[in-house]
Amino acid sequence: MDLFFSLTVNGLATGMLIFLLAAGLTLIFGLMDVLNFAHGGLFVWGAFSGVWVYDLTGSFWLGIVGAIITGLILGAIIEYLIIRPVYGNHVQQILITLGLMLVLSELIKVVFGPDQKAATAPEYLQGSFMVGDVILIKYRLFIILVGFIVFGVTSLILKRTRIGLIVRAGVMNKEMVQTLGVNIRLVFMLVFMVGAAMAALGGMLMAPYSGVIYAEMGLEFGILAFIVVVIGGMGSFSGSLLAAILVGLAQAYMAYYVPALSLAVNMLLMTVVLIFRPQGLFRVGVK
């Protein structure tokens, strides 16, 4: 039983990391109709820049702030230079964001060096609790906590504030929102920046969790995030949380019980969902 429990905690933690990546992706898709294949690149940039700040200052929290700022800045630049020229053209969007992904992960090697980087959690997050005979690793609980906080805060913003109202309305029908006098382009940029920042935060949290970070992990996690977005339904924020947890848990259980299938299980999951319910499990909007 305790084994099952720790697998669950593992899966939840991984799920939360994927959620941070997928949440931005799904919002960007829902609002802007852009599928950002470079999202994994932002994840790696968050990880590397965050760890760099963390190493420099010795403060984990400053590292997180650094990652978020990197995400915001990169998000703004990318939206303005790369995404804006190709609004409305799906094939070009796919091609261009994929190219961006290549450039982003190669640039990592130029800026931070081609080697893997090690990262450890700060002391107060190392170690574990014992509850009965169940071992709870602190850092994993921390990730789960952060994931829920991000989810809670973002949901509150989406549901209770004016900007959240605009975003939700935009997901449903952006032409109408524009007609009502909202500068939708500005909202696009804002959402893209926030999405990028969430991805960067996910990358930073990922670093001490896996211990090492490397430039190629962007694509790996990017694919997982896509799977989550597809399962959760494009544009559905809470759907992406549920799907991320589902994917995280499926991977954790499979890795233990059926290791041969662990890499394939999520892709199989996505294939099944796409073939039988291509709109995703929790689709919102009327498109």
Partner: peptide, 28 residues
Amino acid sequence: ILTLRLKSHFYAMLTLALAGLFLVAAEK
């Protein structure tokens, strides 16, 4: 037959995942 009826985004992702499956199969 299974995937080409999907929209461009989904098709791109699904093929990415399927190629990933082949890679995994070849490794295992």
